[in-house]
Amino acid sequence: MATPTAAAPRTNRLGLAILDYKGGKTTLCAGCGHNAISERILEAYFDLGIPPERVAKFSGIGCSSKTPAYFMSRSHSFNAVHGRMPSVATGALLANRTLHGVGVSGDGDTASIGIGQFVNLIRRNVAMVYVVENNGVYGLTKGQFSATADPGSTLKGGDVADLPAIDICALALQLGASFVGRSFSGDKKQLSVLLKAAVAHGGTALLDVISPCVTFNDHEGSTKSFSFVKEHGEPLQELSFVPAFEEIDVDYDPGTTQEVTLHDGSHLRLKKLEAGYDPSDRVRAMSRLMESARGGEVLTGMLFLDPAAPDLATRLGLVAAPLATLPPEQVRPSRAVLDAINASLR
């Protein structure tokens, strides 16, 4: 009988193992949806074969914003101030447009204190993945409603949300977002595909991920609980992803399946679960979102996608090399230039 040998760990195209993409130990509650999202994020970068050193992680303040410490320790990370991560990420990605930026935020961080920065990040179409871990509640301060809490939804203590909820996806659509997806922390397959598509996208890729708070908002009466999303989740498509470095198999039915080429040459394949839904139609996406909200459903999938929308660095016409490390002769004009300026001021 042969001695069993330990199987070699699976590696990606760089020869890196999944361990090379791991982060620190999570300090979030056991069962928190956020931990599952962290796993999906690191798997996406692993599967796509992106070196962790090429990734920059950004976050604000809140439970969600702690998570960059729990995945990909070999990536630089910036845990900024509450609601202002988008500006920090914008600055960093202007300084170095070759980085893969990924921001993790929450519904408080994005839709309450940080809504102004979120709005303008989307408008600028900064090339980065922007994940909202949306649980409708403030966890670190022990359970207050956020602006995404649905009206009628209750807190454990009995408080009822009475203000209109901000639908992050609908908001982003109105703002001209180039990539809008919604998923659920418990839907491993859909979330994985959407994350890979987000990484492959060349602008702000917004993913609103319902991520139940097991401690403060997972009870009967909450619209952000595991059971509610499982019952009322309404996927638009069955999604699959073919990275740019893999050959596309052509075996799909164009009548029921749509294929979109993403910014980096990857392909997103959408098998329609809903006849007539076209993710390049912003108006339809908006009305479909509002219909589902009215019906108490949680619409998920690739809501809208425009792979050709120019990102901020492109619109500014930036040089290809990172601004951060341009050599001095490219950034300090010559003595002759100053002489000419002085002469013009005489």
């Binding site: 920059a56 950004f58 910036f78 900024a80 101030v81 202002r84 988008p86 500006s87 920090v88 990420a89 914008t90 600055g91 960093a92 990605l93 202007l94 300084a95 170095n96 980085l99 102004g116 920065q117 709005v119 303008n120 600028r124 901020l312 660095a313 500014l316 016409g317 930036l318 040089v319 290809a320 990172p322 601004l323 951060a324 490390t325 341009l326 490219q330 950034v331």
Partner: peptide, 30 residues
């Protein structure tokens, strides 16, 4: 015609300083 600079009109001063901090962190003179 490519630019070795990025001038961005921010939405407010909070965003302006946030972008400066982000850019400087990534190594740019901001």
């Amino acid at each position: 015609g490519q630019a070795s600079f990025a001038v961005v009109q921010a939405e407010d001063e909070l965003a302006a300083i946030g972008m400066v901090i982000g850019a400087s962190w990534a190594g740019a003179r901001a």
